[in-house]
Design a protein around this nucleic acid. Structure first.
Lengths: 177, 177
DNA sequence: ACGTTCACGTCAACAATCCTGACCCAAAAT
DNA sequence: ATTTTGGGTCAGGATTGTTGACGTGAACGT
């Protein structure tokens, strides 16, 4: 007998009287604001001192990170991910390129493009910065367990918009989203 | 027969050959970087246009939010939450106070303190901004379901540091953390 | 071939938000 | 009485983001 597909919310609605929807209460949603703030604050903060020593800031890290995640990323795509103007990115990217961490190559299909790649030293640096964040993340994952991690991923994915999800998917399956 | 307490990570380790630790692989951790970025980007972005119309920015929103979450918050505590200097906060808070959204009252136990409260209009505004973020969050929660939400909370809580967790706990049980 | 559009780059000035250092007043602690 | 602490102010500087304008050359459409 095939089971009828039921959404997670619908499943919860079937649990003991009304209790199933507690997680949608205002207080729960407000707590999420706090959770996101503190987690993001501390996650990004973990890399700050290292970035600072190198004369970089978070903006540089973000650029470095996404170029590393998507080798051959087009400038316009990076703009779309970071949600900043090209002038703003130019300053940040210019420094990364000047420092030999990022390189640009003309696109094969469109020679106007300046596809972005991390250099070997760029990858090395990105890895170093990643290590600063990794331990915090791994510990949180281990403490929470795989089921919780799956839930974490599902919810965050749902908070991100369509474009964000497309890039998340692409990171798993290389190719333009 | 009482069950022996087993940590979530240990439970996972007992699952089919090695698969239990997949969620701690580097690629999984890297994906978390992306997830956090996109979710936070879009979550905070949801309120930006409203804030801008009012002549405020994210810094103002953060201050407004936490004063609302913790009525009677001391200035030094807000500094500790936001991780900014008092000079920086002074500008932001000064505007909120000037606009009649926040008020200060001397502490009862320590008259040097300037305890912070949202005014009625401050609360009204904070609620309006919250509504901008709420729907996105609620939809993500509904889609993911209560189990996933619990997981989300557990992991984010684990990413935040001790101080963050203390404030998270206090938001649930009013009182200084 | 030519006109238009597009990817990216540059220059410039300004804004939001954060920092450091210094100094001050008054309350609290020693 | 002296020292420490909570909060405030002044000032100058840094990071990162914005807007507008202009330019080059590749790609596209006619």
């Amino acid at each position: 007998m095939p089971e009828t597909p039921v959404s997670p919310a619908a499943q919860a609605a079937h649990s003991p009287a009304g209790a199933g929807l507690l997680y949608l209460r205002e207080e729960e949603l407000r707590a999420a604001q706090d959770l996101l703030f503190f987690a993001y604050r501390d996650f990004t903060g973990a890399a700050d001192s290292m970035l600072e020593e190198l004369g970089f800031g978070r903006a540089h890290h973000r650029a470095l990170h996404f170029v590393g995640r998507h080798p051959g990323l087009a400038v316009s795509d990076l703009l779309g991910i970071l949600r900043i103007t090209k002038q703003s990115l130019a300053r940040v990217l210019g420094l990364l390129i000047a420092k030999g961490l990022v390189e640009q190559r003309p696109g094969r299909d469109d020679r106007r493009q300046r596809l972005l790649y991390l250099t070997a030293s760029g990858r090395a640096l990105e890895r170093q910065v990643f290590e600063r964040q990794r331990e915090r993340l791994a510990r949180a994952y281990r403490d929470a367990g795989p089921q919780a991690v799956e839930g974490f991923r599902r919810v965050l994915r749902g908070i991100a918009n369509e474009q964000g999800r497309a890039w998340l998917d692409r990171a798993e399956r290389p190719g333009r989203p």
